[in-house]
């Protein structure tokens, strides 16, 4: 009888998603984001694609897949803006990689971990975007707006909890 052994948390709780979910959820997140921002301009503060990136990265627990997922979502997001393509792609690539790396070592299914994770990644996303704008693109007048970014992080964290619970239903054990 072959012995069943788990060498890491990744092998213990690695999840996969159907291709439809993998494709449609990011597109839906971008679409809802666009519609919400048009409905009320202050809702542009939310970043639903970021939340989806974090969810897929921590669920799959593969940094390479997380990086590619983040890059793809970020590039689609960039394509709808008037800015150079790649700004959000780079930011979400980094976040996808880190989120997947954390997911290997930490229990990301607990509520507290999710709250802390979303809050931290939202701040990190703002920091990376600021650095890209300031250092790589040389955008004039780019300043860190601390209060606004904190508010954005809180809003994303609040919204991410029900979204994570909703997306949990699409998980398949690999």
């Amino acid at each position: 009888m072959p012995s069943l052994s788990y060498t890491s948390r990744r092998e213990l709780e690695e999840h996969s998603f159907s291709p439809a979910v993998t494709l449609l959820v990011p597109v839906a997140a971008i679409l809802v984001q666009v519609l919400l921002a048009k409905l009320y301009w202050r809702l542009a503060m939310l970043d639903l694609p970021l939340i989806v990136t974090i969810f897929f990265s921590v669920s799959r627990r593969s940094p390479a897949v997380g990086t590619v997922t983040g890059a793809a979502i970020g590039l689609i997001q960039d394509a709808l803006t008037g800015r150079p393509v790649g700004v959000n792609g780079m930011a979400k690539s980094v976040i996808g990689y880190i989120a997947a790396s954390i997911g290997i070592k930490v229990d990301v299914d607990s509520l507290l971990t999710r709250i802390l994770m979303n809050f931290g990644f939202s701040l990190l996303n703002s920091l990376i975007l600021f650095l890209i704008n300031r250092r790589m693109l040389g955008t004039p007048g780019a300043h860190p707006a601390y209060a606004q970014e904190l508010l954005r992080a809180v809003a994303n964290t609040v919204v991410s909890i029900p979204i994570f619970l909703l997306l949990d239903t699409t998980k398949r054990v690999a």
Binding site: P63, V85, M90
Partner: peptide, 18 residues
């Protein structure tokens, strides 16, 4: 170093594109 290499490659490609 597959994961790190993927990250570096993706970031490098996007940086060049930018």
């Amino acid at each position: 170093f597959k994961n790190v290499l993927v990250l570096v490659a993706v970031l490098l490609a996007q940086t060049i594109g930018l």
